[in-house]
């Protein structure tokens, strides 16, 4: 899932301080799971902003809501009958949701309330880590189900760089060496021959390097 963290309060206040009617729009999708931008976080942020305005002697209206998913028009449409009453919206969705909301209501000022970080997993509550960089051409079949693009600090594709120590990455001792993980897993699976097959330089056009991407699934389109 997409992982995000709440933006610092000061940054949000700096963006919205000159507005009088604000809507805080959470999203029930990924950002709810990582507790950065769901209804609960929308309520907390709205309360904090109300407090800020009250302490500053300002009469500002700050309401909160949450949509099922801000990355879908059908759910964004639920705001259509009320969004006009607000000067600006703070969206707590991921970068996709924030942009889609702004795209749908193109006359409305929309601010981000979270920093979108990566595609990752929930290791524990409050501990999320990256697993995928959405490069567009999955190589997990060759690497024992562990992605060197996401898990190796140098995105190496042909084995470790030689800088790891005790199974930890030289970039950060908190980070396991992605290639050690791959090697150990392939060994466990009896698939070490995969490790011995060199890869050719990767085609990055399917990644973000080929420009903004789009999927067209003719089999799904009506």
């Amino acid at each position: 899932m997409i992982k995000a963290i709440p933006k610092p309060m000061e940054e949000i206040i700096d963006n919205v301080k000159d507005f009088n009617k604000l809507l805080i729009a959470g999203c029930d999708g990924c950002v709810t799971v990582c507790e950065a931008g769901g209804l609960k976080e929308a309520k907390v942020l709205a309360s904090a902003l109300r407090l800020y305005f009250t302490q500053g002697g300002r009469q500002a209206q700050v309401d909160e809501t949450s949509l099922t998913r801000q990355c879908e028009k059908e759910y964004l449409a639920q705001l259509s009958d009320r969004i006009d009453q607000y000067d600006a919206v703070v969206s707590l969705a991921c970068g996709c949701g924030i942009q889609y909301l702004a795209e749908m209501y193109d006359k409305k000022i929309v601010f981000p309330g979270v920093d979108t970080c990566f595609l990752g997993v929930n290791e524990e509550r409050g501990l999320y880590s990256e697993r995928c960089q959405a490069c567009g051409r999955c190589i997990l079949a060759e690497t024992g189900g562990i992605c060197p693009i996401a898990r190796c600090s140098k995105r190496m594709l042909n084995g470790p760089c030689g800088g790891s120590e005790g199974g930890k990455c030289e970039v950060s001792k908190e980070t396991p060496c992605g290639w050690e993980l791959i090697y150990e897993r392939l060994k466990t699976l009896g698939q070490l021959h995969r490790f011995e097959t060199p890869t050719v330089p990767k085609d990055w056009t399917t990644s973000r390097d080929g420009g903004p991407r789009k999927i067209v699934r003719e089999d799904l389109r009506i």
Partner: peptide
């Protein structure tokens, strides 16, 4: 120029 305009399309800019 954009890498896609050249002769090494697969490269990462």
């Amino acid at each position: 120029e954009e890498i896609t305009h050249g002769d090494h399309h697969k490269a990462r800019p």
